[in-house]
Nucleic acid binder design. Structure first.
Ligand SMILES: [Mn+2]
Ligand SMILES: [Mn+2]
Ligand SMILES: [Zn+2]
Ligand SMILES: [Zn+2]
Lengths: 147, 147
DNA sequence: GATTGTTTTGCAACTATGTTGCCTTTTTAT
DNA sequence: ATAAAAAGGCAACATAGTTGCAAAACAATC
């Protein structure tokens, strides 16, 4: 890995933060790094473990909250009640998330993936119910774990 | 409300508990009552508030866990990370839940409903992913709130 | 590059949520 | 009624999440 590549990533992170009207701080850079160097989603606990020695717990909470508010990451509900976070596509922004993909939780490796190409299906609801947002979480065995 | 009706409910509760190999205790009867006299789902907090003055917090946790284990209630994941519980249909039993319906969370009244007649859709996954269980939660405005 | 105003951070203290072990009480079976 | 088994209450603990405030880091300006 050349020094240039590392610099590229740093620049990408900095510009992402600036575009979101967030000042560029060490903790935000570090936490964004974690998301970028990893394919799946991260639980709060993961982040705290990987970044928590350098940063306070409270900072992790506030950083994640800021990222969600600004449309940098989105939350993924899971059955075991531990919210996971994953990077948004570029068309999300402050106040408006536009993630209409489904999520996959592997029961083997316990990773969570955004399946960006799988669009949430139309759900036909009983009379009187009006849908605003549909959340689909599929549990099963992921590509990597399927021997 | 005749005395007979009340007695009927009590009998129904007792037989449900016995069928599930659970001894009939005051806290279990009380908590089942809460589920029966209410159309939607209950969050742990709701139950603790409504039954918690008579029973210890720990008892509520253990009771709900026992009910889930025995297939009397099932959990509903939500975006705000507060697990909700709702009664299962009769075909659930210990070790095997057979709930393939979707759930609806009203953004107005904040109630959660099991839409027992809406079957979870088939999801076409990318190659390599193998689905075991699909969870669908729809957010929107419920029948009662839609003026 | 130093100065200044603004934002973010860490700390402490707190609330909420969930778990475990142990002893007492209640329930069930005989 | 009695004994064995199960469940409940209590205390203590662990984890998760929030808030106010002073110190530190950052961004903007000169
Ligand atoms: Mn996603
Ligand atoms: Mn349900
Ligand atoms: Zn896997
Ligand atoms: Zn409603």
């Amino acid at each position: 890995m050349s020094n240039k590549t590392i610099q590229d990533i740093e620049n990408r992170i900095a510009s992402l933060l600036k575009r979101s009207d967030l000042s560029v701080t060490e903790s935000r850079r570090k936490i964004l790094h974690l998301f970028l160097e990893q394919p799946g989603a991260l639980a709060h606990g993961d982040i705290e473990r990987k970044a928590g020695e350098k940063f306070d717990r409270v900072t992790v909470y506030r950083t994640l909250q800021a990222f969600v508010d600004k449309g940098i990451i989105h939350t993924i509900p899971t059955a075991d009640n531990s919210i996971r976070y994953a990077l948004c596509k570029d068309d999300c922004s402050a106040g408006h998330h536009h993630d209409h993909h489904i999520h996959f939780v592997c029961t083997n490796c316990n990773n969570t993936y955004c399946l960006d190409d799988v669009v949430t299906p139309e759900i036909k609801l009983p009379k009187g119910y009006q849908a605003e947002h549909v959340e689909v979480v599929v549990e099963g065995v992921c590509k990597n774990c399927k021997g």
